[in-house]
């Protein structure tokens, strides 16, 4: 069979597109395709990554403009057919704005841009994104955002919790879910969520930024090696 193909969507203002491309290339053994936001068609791919950055300068609301760009209609269509879609940071904001994931990422409760490493508890290890971890594992990866404060209505939150759709939570180094470990005010310390069918993951932290020893850590790498294995299978 042919090698799995991966697309990285690039918007004006994306700035983690190269980071995730390099990380995916290391895991896959070949480079992903970079797909420009104005394209209205997407080749058949096995994985779509929506990278971090400040698409369209965060005008109106973070991710709002990008969510309405031509390429996102294709991303939504492919997600509906079960293609895994990974949105990181601004990518998560775009996925909520386009309706692939519920809720919204509001301004951080502190009103400050936060750029530092955080501890995350892996809540699910039985997804295509997290099978390289164990449930309950604590991993350390960076956050870098101004709008990462996850909010949704109580019914949606209950449904996320009841259906195990929280993939990652901000935690203390021992895995405890505490207010002190919550960097941005997110409901229930939510750092990443899945869609109903488990093939779309949005998360604010950046696993692609700590996936190489040269960068000071590799806790993010298992996500990409697991994804590469899953789509090659």
């Amino acid at each position: 069979m042919s090698a799995p193909s991966v697309a990285v969507i690039v918007f004006p203002g994306s700035n983690c597109d190269r980071d995730i491309a390099v990380t995916l290339e290391a895991a896959l053994g070949h480079a992903p395709q970079m797909v420009w936001h104005g394209d209205s068609s997407l080749p058949k791919v096995d994985l779509i990554a929506v990278p971090g950055g400040f698409s369209y300068g965060d005008y109106l609301r973070s991710g709002a403009m990008a969510a309405n760009s031509p390429i996102m209609r294709e991303v939504v269509a492919q997600a509906g057919r079960g293609v895994p879609v990974l949105g990181i940071c601004n990518g998560f904001q775009v996925l909520t704005e386009c309706g692939l994931l519920p809720g919204v990422l509001m301004r951080n409760a502190s009103l400050k841009f936060i750029c530092r490493d955080v501890d995350l508890r892996v809540e699910r290890s039985d997804t295509v994104f997290t099978s390289g971890y164990g449930a309950g594992d604590v991993i350390r990866v960076p956050v870098a955002h101004h709008d990462g404060n996850y909010f949704t209505d109580p019914d949606t939150l209950k449904s996320l919790e009841d259906n195990g759709r929280v993939a990652f939570r901000y935690c203390a180094p021992d895995g405890a879910i505490t207010d002190a470990a919550n960097p941005n005010g997110s409901l229930a310390n939510i750092a990443g969520i899945l869609n109903e069918t488990g093939n779309v993951l949005g998360m604010m932290p950046h696993p692609e930024r700590l996936a190489d020893p040269l960068l000071g850590g590799t806790d993010g790498a298992p996500m990409f090696t697991a994804l590469a294995e899953a789509i090659a299978a």
Binding site: L60, A64, N68, T96, V104, D153
Partner: peptide, 9 residues
């Protein structure tokens, strides 16, 4: 509904 507001919040 489509762009100017996010009706979640």
């Amino acid at each position: 509904e489509k762009l100017l507001a996010n009706t979640v919040i």
